[in-house]
Amino acid sequence: APPAEQLHPLQNRWALWFFKNDRSRAWHDNLQLVTKVDTVEDFWAMYSHIQLASKLSSGCDYALFKDGIEPMWEDSRNKRGGRWLMSLAKQQRHSELDRLWLETLLCLIGESFEEHSREVCGAVLNIRTKGDKIAVWTREAENQTGVLHIGRVYKERLGLSAKTIIGYQAHADTATKSNSLAKNKFVV
């Protein structure tokens, strides 16, 4: 490995979490911290050692969050926030999921949202039979300027067409309704 002074430090240390659905265990017990990274080099070492998103089985999640924030609504740094949610069609798992998830990770570790990057808590990938989902979580759903800036940049980075709409939902709304019913607070 190169000496530490030649590594490229990230602005934040990020923790990768893995969730594997085991109904015999409590939700929190199925959530495992995989590793933490704080350099560009560490990030790629991690990425090259884990399964691609498209190879995970249904019910599994990946989450990449800033160190110190747990990937759940209840964390004090998430609970007033929300998420930009992209729901994928089933066939996109094999055509686009890996590209979209990697792009999401690069947006996070590269601090792509200018000064609003500090609003970002992390990102979550859900592998589901009905259709996979990718979301970027931010810490304050009422911060309209920050949330909209993040949404616009994120949509552009994903290469989504102008016709594709992605929505932002406050966790407080998602927690009290099923996902499909939670209303969009913002759209881009």
Binding site: A1, P2, H8, P9, L10, Q11, V40, E41, F43, W44, A45, Y47, S48, E103, L106, C107, I109, G110, E111, S112, S117, R157
Partner: peptide
């Protein structure tokens, strides 16, 4: 200063030998 990296810069490191 803030450590911001664009996607091309980050992708350049993907297959560097030190990362494998």
């Amino acid at each position: 200063g803030k450590k911001q990296y664009d996607r091309e810069f980050l992708l350049d490191f993907q297959f560097m030998p030190a990362c494998i």
